[in-house]
Amino acid sequence: MVEVKLHDIGEGMTEGTIVSYFAREGDEVKRDQPIIELQTEKMVTELSAPVAGKISKIHIEEGQTIPVGTTILEIEAADNVNNEPENKNIEEVDNKQSTTTGPKRIKAAPFTRKVARELGVDIDAITGTGKDGRITVKDVESFSNGGTQIEEKQTSSTQEDVEFIPFKGRRKQIAAHMTKSLFTIPHVAHMEEIDMTKLLAYREDIKETYNISVAAFFIKALAMSLKKFPIFNAELDEDNSQIKLKPNVNMGVAVDTKEGLIVPVINRVEDKSLGTIHSELKTLNEKARENTLQPQDVRGSTFTISNVGPMGSIGATPIINYPEVALMCFHKTKKMPVVNEADEIVIRSMMNVTLTFDHRVMDGGDAIQFTNYFKSLIENPNIMLVELSGE
């Protein structure tokens, strides 16, 4: 008998929520066949069968949150079966007819299956119109509008009709991570305003040739600032009484999704062009909102940004993404009257930024110098490009 346990799939996860099973007790499964859909703090992922055989016992119900190390189910290994890993990836398994006696493998992304559950739709009854028969969100929504729905589960309520929202999955894990950060790190927030007028004009000038987002400029300017002030691209190792200065800038980008906040990572941004940063940022944002991020997409950040300006924020004091030592938040850019050096009132595009930092690692003076340098690059994009050319 082989036990399938919840293991740490990265970033020191401590628990996960069983979203659904792709096979049931008594079903035959192949080695490396996906059998469990799992929700962690940062993503929805799949766990595969370690051996070929029959599922003899499922211990954990769908929707239950369990700690790492818990036995999820047991597989009775098949006799006379080669249990060496097959030289196939999951996509290849999806595109071929299964020869097992278990249920067919539904070709749908975890996010699509989540939409189906929310709409009360039996995804087994849907014919996919996507590539290789894959079921899309549109297929689910179309079926919901005109097809047969399964019985919806009623939300628990009191006599006063109070609605209860389950506190589990990513929401619960985000809470644990934020609580640890806030109670471990002495947070200090330094705020500054930045004149975005020249950068927005420069971006407009190059728009037809290079369509680069403002966020890509922020990330590149921060990479340059972090190289100049490496104390902000660090991690405090209290056990060994030392501060680790990270050699590369791996930028975490906070993304707001239906499942909650998630932080995909653009690695080694100091070595990448503005165009490459823009492209990777766009891809990671799409994957985050579609809930298709992979473990490698969310690992190893050394500094995090939160760009809440498009949502209308004018100020905040965000919590640091532990074990990092700083985070920068960008707020709404708006036109407003400003008094220039000639004492003239002019209209400029102004943006507030907040730098939250770990006061154990650096002081207010460090934060001001770091922010002022970043500000100088954003307010003078030509100087920023000259600095880049000299790297």
Results as ranks from 00 to 15, higher is better:
residue 13 M to Y: 01
residue 355 L to H: 03
residue 142 S to V: 14
residue 229 F to T: 08
residue 252 G to P: 08
residue 315 G to I: 01
residue 110 P to L: 07
residue 149 Q to L: 14
residue 167 F to N: 10
residue 37 E to M: 08
residue 314 I to N: 07
residue 326 A to N: 12
residue 273 S to E: 04
residue 251 M to D: 00
residue 378 I to S: 06
residue 368 I to F: 03
residue 231 I to K: 07
residue 56 S to E: 11
residue 97 Q to S: 14
residue 286 E to P: 05
residue 70 T to W: 04
residue 176 A to M: 10
residue 332 K to V: 12
residue 40 T to K: 04
residue 44 V to G: 09
residue 100 T to M: 09
residue 383 I to Y: 09
residue 302 T to G: 06
residue 3 E to M: 05
residue 228 K to F: 11
residue 180 K to L: 07
residue 78 A to H: 03
residue 204 E to L: 12
residue 16 G to H: 07
residue 287 K to H: 06
residue 18 I to L: 08
residue 11 E to H: 02
residue 289 R to L: 06
residue 97 Q to H: 10
residue 207 K to D: 09
residue 360 R to Y: 02
residue 273 S to A: 07
residue 30 K to M: 12
residue 181 S to Y: 01
residue 344 E to D: 15
residue 293 L to G: 02
residue 19 V to D: 14
residue 177 H to A: 00
residue 79 D to W: 05
residue 131 K to C: 08
residue 188 V to F: 08
residue 40 T to R: 03
residue 348 R to P: 08
residue 250 N to Y: 05
residue 164 F to H: 11
residue 16 G to M: 09
residue 107 K to I: 15
residue 191 M to S: 14
residue 21 Y to C: 15
residue 127 T to R: 10
residue 347 I to D: 02
residue 169 G to Y: 02
residue 303 F to P: 03
residue 311 M to H: 15
residue 297 D to M: 07
residue 15 E to D: 11
residue 378 I to M: 13
residue 50 P to H: 13
residue 269 V to I: 10
residue 59 H to T: 11
residue 380 N to S: 08
residue 201 A to F: 08
residue 174 I to P: 03
residue 2 V to H: 09
residue 328 M to D: 05
residue 5 K to I: 14
residue 106 I to F: 13
residue 20 S to E: 13
residue 359 H to D: 09
residue 232 F to V: 14
residue 4 V to P: 15
residue 348 R to V: 10
residue 153 K to T: 14
residue 277 I to H: 02
residue 11 E to V: 06
residue 171 R to I: 03
residue 45 T to F: 04
residue 34 P to F: 04
residue 47 L to F: 09
residue 141 E to A: 08
residue 27 D to A: 05
residue 71 T to I: 13
residue 346 V to L: 01
